[in-house]
Nucleic acid binder design. Structure first.
Lengths: 336, 336
DNA sequence: CGAGCGAATGATATCGATATCAAGATATCG
DNA sequence: CGATATCTTGATATCGATATCATTCGCTCG
């Protein structure tokens, strides 16, 4: 019966199995499996013969079958927080760069990248994943905890919260805050303002670094809480400072958009950047570099972050010990 | 022998199979399969009983096993062109929005989204996919052809080239060009300039629409070829126009960055926007909306595009007839 | 020269789900 | 009331790869 499968080789879309290859090579299935799997159990000669045969006939491994037998999916699920509207995350470039790094690293390790949004993550395929990478979960610590309970190897992009059981990879937000503070101090600024959302873990870290470093010099910055990271929000923030007649000479904004908005408002209000007020943004977006005046900002290395995220999950899957890690950032000093 | 598997239910990580469920319910595996698969072949009563049991014990379908048996992967591979450096595609927001739409639609149809970069696409998992979606392949028609040969259902984001065998979904670039032309004509502009890369299929379509519509009014726009879509490139373009003493009164730039660069150069050269020169950009980036003056631009609906891409692949996989489709764009008239 | 050893290969069972066909239970009809 | 149609369930084979144990063959060494 099983010999009755006479598929015309070109008709059926590459329906070549190991059994077929085995017959062609005059060996058994298992030998084919070993030959293709670089097992040392077969002669170099047979291995090469079979590999050549496989190449010639365009043999393709059936991933499902292998995964079934091996009881692993060779898949890492990447869960991205994507809000449906034009909110920040949706427009921000960073997930894509991160994704690039992740995809590159995982694929070259023979893993697949399964992309899902937070809402869909109950998916059977996600639950079958060998590991999990969470992106953009910043505000949703509860979501993180939810996935944590799935018991899978998991790495999260974001800020270290100290109390979490999972591995975190992110930019060194705290150090960023310190660097900006140092910069402000070095150019003699004494009345700094921080614009951002302190409820957001990553921004909170920046704030802490900023505050702590300044405190060492007896300076207490003003926190201007802003939930939106839009340009308008930056404009608005500076106006409110002005209306409240607050004295300030430097601004650390948590996004380039906020920073540019702030600068615009400053200029409108007759102040000079950077003479009267220094401004530093965050993210090093292309707009910032071309802004007038060119924006000083903090740059994160997304690509490398993605690679690191991937390496950590793989190590976890492999049972190796893994630690959280924060990537250094660069303070890019331009004109502001 | 096969009865010897006594796994302690809590120890093994959710190692519950249909066979286990069957034993618990006192039925056969196949009945469980049918009950969970909403098959009409089982009584409503048993179906519900088994579903409840499955929920209670946290049963999880083994995707590999099902895919193996069904000879399909229930997976659509999304191949994204991601250049390693800080090139446009890397930073552009659009792939993420597209990805959002794709992921949403595919996941809710029970499919998985396999993310890969162009380089990794020889991957076994990709070749096992039931369908392919290509993003950001704009310039690389050769790449498209390569995947086309895999013989999988395939949908490409981009511009319709007329000679291709595959399905294309994209924004109606040609209509966009027409709309901008109409706009320029309606406000009495007679010396329009197009800034962009005519080698890029999507931009070429915009150019054609633009040129054709203007030709109907006896006007021939000037094409300013620019490979980079940066702000600097826009500045540079306008300067070169100025140096060549070209007369112009309107600019259609193929990206918001180009447009903003152009405007900056215009202002520097003492011209007024929009009094002397009208400018329209492309993409409706958040920066553009907040630009001073607020940028007029063409908006594409990425999210919807993603959903549409997904629906088309699914239809193709399903064997239904499918046609290419171009999504309408919106000309957002602001101050420029 | 035969026991014993290692290298290379193979036969079989198995991973977990579903298609197919068979069979038992129940209902319907003349 | 018996026969056939319908409904529900089950036994078995199967998808394609790999782990395990068995087997074959050639070779070394006492």
């Amino acid at each position: 019966m099983s010999h009755a499968k006479k598929k015309s080789p070109a008709t059926v879309q590459s329906g070549l199995t190991m059994a077929d290859l085995a017959k062609l090579a005059g060996v058994s299935k298992i030998t084919v499996s070993r030959a293709l799997g670089e097992s040392p159990l077969v002669t170099t000669e047979t291995r090469e013969r079979i590999q050549a045969l496989a190449r010639k006939h365009g043999y393709k491994l059936n991933v499902s079958a292998r995964n079934l037998r091996l009881r692993r999916s060779h898949t890492v699920a990447v869960i991205v927080e994507m809000k449906p509207s034009s909110s920040r995350t949706m427009w921000d470039p960073y997930p894509l760069s991160l994704l690039g790094g992740i995809s590159q690293e995982l694929t070259s390790a023979g893993y697949s990248v399964l992309l899902t949004t937070r809402h869909d993550a109950a998916n059977a395929a996600v639950q079958a994943a060998d590991g999990l990478i969470l992106l953009g979960q910043g505000v949703h610590q509860d979501a993180v905890r939810l996935y944590d309970r799935m018991g899978l190897p998991m790495v999260v992009w974001g800020a270290e919260s100290g109390q979490d059981s999972h591995i975190v990879v992110g930019s060194d937000n705290r150090q960023s805050g310190i660097s900006v503070a140092e910069r402000f101090l070095s150019i003699g600024r004494r009345h700094p303002v921080f614009i951002g959302n302190s409820d957001h873990p990553e921004m909170a870290q920046r704030l802490h670094g900023f505050v702590d470093e300044l405190a060492g010099h007896g300076i207490k910055p003003l926190l201007l809480q802003r939930v939106d990271w839009t340009l308008e929000s930056g404009v608005d923030a500076v106006r409110s400072l002005f209306n409240r007649k607050v004295r300030f000479d430097s601004i650390f904004a948590c996004s380039d958009l906020l920073a540019m908005g702030a600068i615009r408002a400053l200029v409108e209000l007759g102040m000079s950047v950077p003479n009267d007020v220094s401004v530093v943004g965050y993210d090093d977006t292309p707009h910032g570099a071309s802004f007038l005046p060119p924006l000083s900002t903090v740059r994160q290395n997304w690509q490398e972050g993605g690679v690191l995220l991937a390496r950590k999950v793989l190590a976890l899957i492999d049972g190796q010990p893994v630690a959280s890690q924060m990537l250094p950032t660069n303070l890019v000093v331009r004109a502001t």
